[in-house]
Simulated scan of single mutants.
Amino acid sequence: MSTVRTIDAAAIRDAVEALCIEANTSLPADVKAALDRAQAAEPWPLAKQTLELLQQNLCVAAREELPICQDTGMACVFLELGQDVHIEGSLTDAVNEGVRRGYEKAYLRKSITADPLQRVNTGDNTPAFLTVHLAPGSGCRLTVAPKGAGSENMSRLAMLKPADGVQGVKDFVLETVRQAGANPCPPIVLGVGIGGSFDHCAALAKQALLRPLDQPNADPFYAALERELLEAINATGFGPQGFGGATTCLGVSIEQRPTHVACLPVAVNMSCHVTRRASREV
């Protein structure tokens, strides 16, 4: 018989507050390593110089404890919650209060409007965009992934025909990158969702961005497709910030799920070179 573990909502609040600051001021190790490799391998002088400037920005942000990007984004909060966990208090209120405190404490830009058409800023970057996944056991893992609008606006979803197959998926991903051009501040990172339903596919694409770039898809077929797409995107020649070069994309992560026999949903969630996320156990 399992024992129920109780977590005070205040612990969730405090963790979210800290993660909002960490995610906005420190690049994840896997993304930094990918940027380092790209800089070392980039053959085009202007592109190499641009990557060096991006690296300087990261160093200044770390030294001064400042945001690595002026767009400190929507606070996308992912909670992997064990089924044997009881949260004492309101989870939603705790997450929003954590975001409010983190963004105010670190003087992070507040970018959330209370209504999509009336455009009145909420003033504290709430509400957060919370996704909860239930898991076996008594664990509780929080991830905060701030998402800026420059890359989010370039994201797309398509309901392909099953007959379009693998080539159709490749064509859609590359078309999305070409249409985006320099708008998402390349080098970019792509999260690709394949399968599920219309709404589930978009969630898969965002979930894919949470996977470290040095962890390929567990299925060899999709791992090979990730590598193939990465090579094809970098062959477009857009390069860092659109100035040309061999470094348009740092990594492609695919998440796939079963789907209806008559469907082939594909979603691309785009992120820039400052793909931000920070996690901790609570």
Rank of each mutant, 00 (worst) to 15 (best):
residue 113 T to K: 05
residue 47 A to M: 07
residue 126 T to H: 04
residue 2 S to F: 14
residue 72 T to E: 07
residue 268 V to T: 11
residue 143 T to I: 02
residue 135 A to S: 10
residue 118 Q to S: 15
residue 219 D to T: 03
residue 125 N to T: 04
residue 178 R to F: 01
residue 31 V to R: 00
residue 194 I to A: 05
residue 200 H to V: 09
residue 16 V to S: 06
residue 15 A to W: 00
residue 117 L to T: 14
residue 76 C to K: 11
residue 216 P to Q: 12
residue 236 T to M: 14
residue 221 F to A: 11
residue 141 R to A: 07
residue 11 A to K: 10
residue 82 G to R: 01
residue 82 G to Q: 04
residue 93 D to F: 05
residue 229 L to C: 05
residue 280 R to N: 07
residue 131 T to E: 15
residue 29 A to W: 01
residue 174 L to W: 03
residue 15 A to D: 06
residue 217 N to M: 04
residue 155 S to W: 04
residue 1 M to D: 04
residue 102 G to A: 03
residue 180 A to K: 04
residue 141 R to H: 12
residue 5 R to M: 06
residue 163 A to V: 15
residue 142 L to P: 00
residue 67 P to Y: 00
residue 4 V to T: 14
residue 221 F to W: 04
residue 5 R to E: 03
residue 264 L to Q: 10
residue 58 L to V: 06
residue 197 S to E: 13
residue 255 E to D: 02
residue 192 V to D: 01
residue 138 S to L: 06
residue 107 Y to S: 14
residue 274 V to D: 03
residue 173 V to H: 01
residue 1 M to K: 11
residue 241 Q to D: 04
residue 95 V to W: 00
residue 68 I to R: 00
residue 27 L to Y: 05
residue 250 L to T: 02
residue 9 A to T: 05
residue 159 M to C: 09
residue 237 G to C: 10
residue 205 A to C: 08
residue 215 Q to R: 12
residue 214 D to V: 05
residue 229 L to N: 11
residue 84 D to L: 10
residue 238 F to A: 09
residue 111 S to C: 11
residue 78 F to H: 09
residue 216 P to M: 14
residue 227 R to F: 01
residue 104 E to A: 14
residue 205 A to E: 06
residue 88 E to H: 02
residue 272 C to Y: 03
residue 99 V to R: 03
residue 126 T to K: 10
residue 67 P to V: 02
residue 58 L to K: 01
residue 27 L to D: 11
residue 37 R to Q: 15
residue 220 P to V: 14
residue 86 H to Q: 15
residue 111 S to Y: 03
residue 182 A to N: 07
residue 4 V to G: 00
residue 10 A to Y: 00
residue 100 R to F: 04
residue 121 N to R: 01
residue 116 P to M: 12
residue 264 L to D: 01
residue 266 V to A: 07
residue 202 A to G: 12
residue 127 P to N: 08
residue 214 D to F: 09
residue 183 N to V: 14
residue 55 Q to T: 15
residue 52 E to N: 15
residue 198 F to A: 15
residue 276 R to D: 01
residue 235 A to N: 13
residue 103 Y to Q: 06
residue 167 Q to I: 13
residue 279 S to P: 03
residue 281 E to G: 09
residue 228 E to V: 02
residue 208 A to Y: 11
residue 40 A to P: 06
residue 279 S to F: 05
residue 207 Q to W: 06
residue 7 I to F: 08
residue 267 A to Q: 11
residue 7 I to D: 00
residue 2 S to W: 14
residue 160 L to Y: 14
residue 279 S to D: 02
residue 178 R to G: 00
residue 177 V to R: 03
